[in-house]
Amino acid sequence: MSEDNQNDPIMQWVTFRLGDEKYGINVMQVQEVLRITEIAPVPGAPSYVLGIINLRGNVVTVIDTRNRFGLMFKETDDSSRVVIIETEEHIIGILVDSVAEVVELRASEIETAPNVGNEETSKYIQGVTSLENELLILVDLNKFLSDEEKQEMDMF
């Protein structure tokens, strides 16, 4: 590894779209990207939980990312994808409008996003960077769900 890479490491990010905005998640945490399959609703689950899917015999909870990010509901279409991700202890699926590409970013290119409110939810925004004349919002998947929410996941 060159000295340059040690001082300013390069990370790969899978980008996806939700509405007009583009988001990025650490490629190392992405297991696979699925087309929309049948998602079985879970009675009594929080509003951000779409339901569960059967992934080769394993039950995976699918999160409504639009709901989580405070965006309007949108019907799924041909571009919709479920990204299977691995957080610290859980494997979950996140529903996104579309998956775009994998990009490489240097650590120095990432700027901390402003946190102007008191909302706990903004903790999962790791930073922002410019990419092809638009802003890419980087999401920290380990903070995507709170500890309480992770415990709740175990019950499904």
Binding site: E21, F69, P114, S122
Partner: peptide
Amino acid sequence: PTKIPGQPSWF
């Protein structure tokens, strides 16, 4: 502007 999730409505 690019909306950042989890921020107050005035942002």
